[in-house]
């Protein structure tokens, strides 16, 4: 169980970190006055500072109002549901990078339908493959937009 307070602090720290990254990154390109007006780093530098400052504002606000933020941010049950959605999605991206988007689509839909949707394996696999084929015709044939492909498409000679 995560409290709202922890989540606020975590997120504000994350945004402060991103702001700091912009500040540090901008320093490399000069933040002063160059031949052509302000140097490329100037705008990101001050934007980064603003993000850091307002993140600190949120941090202070959360710390001061800590008693009002003890409500639950994420139950165990909710966390399980989010994880059961997020992890397959993460796997989908990893597989898409390795085997291409079409194969990943077929696998992802089939596995999620079979494991989480409790459909029969045959129906799940058939639906996954059907979806991949529909996407192929809609994108590559109708709109002529190529998607990320992997070894399977290469073996089938589809480019």
């Amino acid at each position: 169980m995560i409290s709202r307070y922890t989540a606020e602090i975590g997120t504000a720290t994350l945004t402060a970190g991103l702001g700091l990254a912009a500040v540090v990154g901008a320093l490399e390109f000069g933040i002063g006055w160059g031949d052509a007006g302000p140097e490329p780093g100037a705008f990101p530098f001050y934007i980064g500072l603003l993000v850091v400052a307002t993140s600190l504002g949120t941090l202070i606000q959360a710390t001061v109002g800590r008693h009002g933020l003890q409500s639950v941010f994420l139950h165990k049950e909710e966390a399980k549901r989010v994880a059961s959605f997020f992890l397959p999605m993460l796997a989908f991206v990893v597989v898409a990078r390795l085997l291409g988007l079409y194969v990943a689509t077929a696998l992802y839909l089939a596995v999620v339908m079979w494991v989480q949707g409790k459909y029969r394996l045959v129906i799940s696999v058939a639906s996954g493959i059907a979806a991949a084929i529909i996407f192929y015709f809609a994108l590559e044939v109708a709109f002529q937009v190529p998607l990320l492909k992997g070894p399977l498409e290469a073996a089938l000679g589809l480019y």
Binding site: A12, G19, E28, V51
Partner: peptide
């Protein structure tokens, strides 16, 4: 914070004034 992050993300890549790369 949300607005500033948007500006920071937009700044990544080519700088439209100098044409140089940054961030």
């Amino acid at each position: 914070v949300s607005m500033g992050l948007g500006f920071a993300f937009a700044a990544v890549g080519m700088d439209t004034v100098s044409g140089g790369l940054r961030l």
